[in-house]
Design a protein around this nucleic acid. Structure first.
Lengths: 340, 340
DNA sequence: GGCTGGCACTCTATCGACCCGAGTGCTATT
DNA sequence: AATAGCACTCGGGTCGATAGAGTGCCAGCC
């Protein structure tokens, strides 16, 4: 690709991201510092259209970049606003205080994302592996139910209601509780399951029911976890591209469904890169051709903890949004770094 | 108010709730079983307009009920669809199985609400009083942090990260854990705070930092609880009244803000009635004149646990929606009745 | 006296005609 | 190779006419 073409493409994309409208050759020639006549620009644009980087919705409507065009811009032509980046890092540093709970950090992160970008913020929490059991506590709740509180070595807490068919005194329960805790402490899920099976076979403790329910838990420990946090969804409604109700509906259907978004999240979790951008059709969400998603992984103590980012219109200012998402992810990582 | 007028008002409201459009005298005379000429109906309508129960947006546009008109209908004229009600109760009975966790029941309830009404479902969880502490468990997470797991006598579990400034062995921590648990067990928050203060003064255990953080917790135990669960928000977008983007935006702003909705929820929590309806301006949500909210309290084990209901267009079929909300609340109450 | 039919009037929503502006593609020219 | 000019195309906005739905009021009927 010739330098001339790259240059023109860059200008077209910039203008498009600025205004959200198609850009014509005259307007580009007049307002920019291109120094070329409209006709020359038209030639270049025609070439770019043949390459599949630009397209025009109809004959006399100017041109706008295709998804590929924006992709090329983001990957090769764009330079991020480094002054902005520095400011972001500085302001992030300023409110660094560790020892805060995961959920609060994430909540703050989404809000930060929406207030900086004016788009919808999105944070996913990676389903943790619940590697090792640290502690199990059985607490009597009523005559019929027991609450099992299971704590992982990573500080994850889960609780589960268990029916209490076998009648037993609270003292007895306490005794059983510490026995089970001793039995399963330091086990990973597989080991725990094995030990439970063995215990159920022997049936020494006469608490088959309870053990069965615990075993069930080892098979499906993270069932029903909430996994996606949103904020600022209503921000998106301000965008002109949502004049059509249809678009809005499918957007919010996506928010509710979550399935499809989770796919993207998983993809980012697996990827190597920090920030990943999905432009228009690239994310394969139905009826969301005008939407882009910018995501980044965040980490804590070496392991990947989840993904965060924003959802916004395709014509967003990527050179602003990318560093924002990047810095927020770094900030979250730092907050969680030493804390768990 | 004369019988004739009541009758006409009822028919107008019914027609309006059916179609969402203004209703004219001719149309009413032709399709209904009124047996009156358009002119007579017009006279009655003019009277009702003077009474403030009907209004017309402009001269030649037919009439529609005012908020007061709908209110009169709901309070005095409407009969609920008792066949529907019976079916609802039956289907609710059929999937009654107790011993399920609160959150799952509520999630299921909102989904039930949206699928039955095709509006947005809403469930609030009343901030629990966390009456008595049952158990406290301190679990070492890292060299810097301790996880405090606090279990209430109602089976509520909360956990909190605590910094670990005082170095101590895991054994020591276990010892302290059981001491604190013994100290605070069966206390309500006030008593717990007092005992903690006393303990901090004496400073026998040399764990001032830890105790301080626990004391802080007793002062604000439910901080940052999620309190409103939605579902089916995108359903609302299908309603014709959301042709205008403005309405949609303010609606979703309300969803995000939550503040205003919480006010309604609190009102329902305080009220005596089962189901409560807020029509149009009655709920005082800005820009939501075309929206109605139907809420009902639900209970468990005698005490009020929260509120659930739907948010939908003002012209919803109240005779369907009221029993649906009512039955769902009963169902939830039943599910939670014996379970905690 | 209350109900009804008729008539004149009002207001909105819709449709088609029309024009303007923005933009393109092609070709001749420098 | 870049530019200037020209004919052509298409979408959006404005304007006016029309149809339709509905009202209010009046005179007549039971």
């Amino acid at each position: 690709m010739k330098e001339r073409h790259e240059y023109i493409l860059g200008e077209v994309v910039k203008a498009y991201l600025d205004t959200g409208k198609t850009v014509g050759s005259r307007m580009l020639s007049e307002q920019g510092e291109i120094g070329l006549s409209p006709a020359s620009i038209r030639n270049a644009m025609a070439d770019l259209e043949r390459m599949g980087l630009l397209c025009s919705p109809h004959t006399s409507a100017g041109r706008k970049p295709t998804d590929d065009g924006i992709r090329y811009f983001v990957d090769s032509l764009m330079t991020v606003d480094s002054a902005l980046e520095k400011r972001l890092i500085a302001s992030a540093e300023s409110n660094l205080h560790s020892g805060v709970e995961l959920n609060k950090v994430l909540q703050q992160a989404t809000e930060e994302l929406t207030s900086l970008t004016r788009f919808a913020g999105l944070v996913s929490v990676h389903e943790p592996d619940f590697k090792r059991i640290k502690n199990i506590e059985l607490v009597p709740i009523s005559s019929e139910q027991i609450l099992a509180v299971i704590i992982s070595s990573e500080g994850e807490v889960q609780n589960r209601l268990v029916r209490r068919t076998d009648t037993m005194s609270d003292d007895k329960l306490r005794e059983i509780s510490s026995k089970i805790s001793a039995l399963l402490s330091q086990c990973n899920l597989k080991e725990a399951r094995e030990r439970l099976v063995k215990e159920i076979d022997q049936d020494r403790l006469k608490i088959r029911q309870l053990l069965e329910e615990l075993k069930q838990w080892t098979e499906n420990p993270t069932e029903g976890k909430t996994d996606l946090i949103f904020s600022g969804q209503s921000q998106l409604l301000k965008m002109p591209e949502f004049g059509v109700i249809e678009t809005v509906r499918s957007l919010f259907a996506v928010f509710e469904e979550k399935e499809d978004l989770l796919k993207l999240v998983k993809e980012v979790e697996r990827s190597e890169h920090g920030v990943k951008v999905f432009i228009g059709q690239e994310h394969a969400l139905v009826d969301m051709e005008e939407i882009s998603v910018v995501l980044s992984r965040y980490e804590g103590e070496g392991r990947m903890l989840g993904t965060l980012g924003v959802i916004g219109p395709k014509c967003m200012q990527y050179d602003r949004v990318l560093p924002i998402v990047d810095c927020t992810a770094r900030w979250v990582s730092k907050m969680l770094g030493g804390s768990r």
